[in-house]
Every structure is written in C-alpha cells, then in structure tokens.
Simulated assay, not measured.
Amino acid sequence: MEQLRESVAAGSACDVCGRLPHPHRFRLSLAKLAAVLPVELALHALVLALHPPYLLAVALLAISTTVLVVWVVEPSAMRLLRGWLHGPAYRMRRAARETIEKAPSLWRIRVTLDDETGQLERLTGRLAELDVNILGLTVHPLADGVRDELVVSTPAELSADELLDAIAAAGGRDAHLWPTTALALVDGQTEALNLAARVVADPAELPHAVSELLGARLVTDRLAVSNGRLPTDGSVLKIPSPWNGLIVFTRSGEGFTPAESARAHRLAQIAELSRGEVSCCR
C-alpha cells in the first residue's frame, strides 16, 4: 500500500518517456547537474582561452549554454540516465508484476456428481492434491445426482485442463469452469435477497435480476421464442412475465437446475406482487 501511495504521489508522467511517473526530485537534480556541469566548464574554458571582449564573452556563454543544455545535452542525458532516474518506479512495477503473476487464480466450477456418500470428499481430495482451495460451495439437487457449484482458488501455474482432468478423475461429469472474481464469493442467499430487494423497488428490474442471479442471457428475439427455435437441451428457462407472456433466458452449454428455476420463478412472483401494490397505490 505504501508503494502504491508513493506511485500515486509521484505526479504526472515523465517528460522524457511519457509513461513512468515523474522521477524523484533529488535524482532529477543530480542528473541535470551531471549533464550541465561538464558543458558549462568546457564553454567557460573555451571562452577564457580565446579572450574575447567582455560583452561578447557573456553573450556567447549565455546563448551557447542555453542552446546546448536545453535542446541537446539535458534531453540526451535524461534518456541516457532513464534507467537510474526511474529506478524506484521500475522496481515497483517489477514487484507488482511478480505479485500479479504469483497471485492465485479464481475459478467457478459447475460439475455433476453422483449422490453417493464420499463422492464430494473424493473431489475435494483430488483438488487438495493440486493445492486448490475451495472458497465456496453450492449444491443443486438433480434427478440423477447433484450439480455442485464451487468457487476455488488455484495456483497461478495450474491450467484449466489440469483442473478439469482432476475433476474427471474424481468421478465428476459434465464439468464446466470459468475464470471469476472475488464477487463470486458473495453467498447465494445474500445475492438472492439483494436482487429480490431490487425487484421489489422496481419490478421492471426482473429480467436483469434473473440474468444476474443465474448468469444467463435474456432472449430478446420474440420470433425465435414464438416459433420454438430455441435449444431443447435444458439451457433455456422460461418464467411468467408480470406484463405479457413469458420471459426467456438461455445459458450456453449449461442447463438450469430445478433450484435455479424455482429461484427465478419466485423472483417473478415478487415482481408481480410488487407491480400490483404499485398499481393499487396509484
């Protein structure tokens, strides 16, 4: 945090490279002194050796020093000493990059398991062998087993294929995984309550609330809905609309569980009740 504070306080971008923060004032002063002093000494020695008239000497020193220092020497020295000038910034960037590279990855996993004793234990054991930390777990009952949704933290070097192989070796089937963020760690009950509150406050938020709750996409093509041109693999969910007809959602490659369908229908009921109360108040 202290490094971040120093980086922010460093000011605007460097005039030379335009990307790194402006170098520290002390380092910048030393670099300018190192660039200007040799030029000043050389010019003074040359003028003293030639013995020109006083006014001419002053004019020559002022003009030549200004031109050489401002336009030639100082910019060249700044570029030459850029590595030293921006040393702290380079180190901060390198440390930040190494921290990011070593940071664990977050994944959201959905996998179907047999509803048998020890099945989940076998899966967690396999994941533990890969140094995978389970941060969240939600269980969705199915007719032929359970659909588990896990949020896990994995070592940065662990690939998605290695993770899927471990899940398959533990008896998991139809596994899908997606990179996720810390927002996925909000428990499902809290998220559902927050979305229900949004729907109560504004029933028109129902489609967006269901999409967010289930990670689904709202189908806006009414012709596809009316003509039945939608997938039949369980990846389509229809809920009653408080306004007209049905609201349809789809989730590519991942079917909706009965629990998810029940949650969506419950949100639709809340929206309908809230809409009725708003109409009565008017």
Score class of each variant (00 low, 15 high):
residue 189 Q to H: 10
residue 191 E to T: 14
residue 206 L to Q: 03
residue 243 W to L: 14
residue 2 E to Q: 12
residue 205 E to G: 06
residue 58 V to C: 01
residue 206 L to H: 00
residue 90 Y to I: 00
residue 217 R to D: 10
residue 219 V to G: 07
residue 35 A to E: 00
residue 115 D to E: 10
residue 42 A to G: 02
residue 70 V to Y: 00
residue 48 L to Q: 02
residue 134 I to K: 00
residue 238 K to Q: 12
residue 5 R to A: 15
residue 217 R to E: 11
residue 267 L to Y: 02
residue 3 Q to W: 05
residue 168 A to V: 11
residue 231 P to R: 15
residue 123 L to P: 01
residue 13 A to G: 13
residue 24 H to L: 13
residue 155 P to D: 11
residue 137 L to A: 07
residue 38 P to Y: 02
residue 281 C to P: 14
residue 226 S to H: 15
residue 268 A to F: 03
residue 47 V to I: 04
residue 231 P to S: 00
residue 229 R to Y: 04
residue 177 L to T: 00
residue 233 D to L: 08
residue 243 W to K: 00
residue 204 A to K: 06
residue 166 A to T: 03
residue 134 I to D: 12
residue 54 Y to W: 15
residue 250 T to N: 08
residue 226 S to N: 15
residue 111 V to G: 04
residue 213 L to T: 07
residue 74 E to M: 13
residue 90 Y to M: 02
residue 227 N to Q: 15
residue 13 A to M: 09
residue 9 A to W: 01
residue 111 V to Q: 08
residue 212 E to Y: 11
residue 106 L to N: 06
residue 78 M to P: 03
residue 75 P to E: 01
residue 169 A to M: 08
residue 54 Y to H: 14
residue 177 L to R: 06
residue 141 P to R: 13
residue 189 Q to L: 13
residue 6 E to A: 12
residue 5 R to L: 08
residue 199 V to F: 03
residue 266 R to V: 09
residue 245 G to A: 05
residue 19 R to V: 15
residue 253 G to A: 05
residue 213 L to K: 10
residue 185 L to P: 07
residue 193 L to S: 10
residue 194 N to G: 13
residue 165 D to K: 00
residue 185 L to W: 10
residue 84 W to V: 04
residue 220 T to G: 06
residue 70 V to E: 04
residue 69 V to S: 04
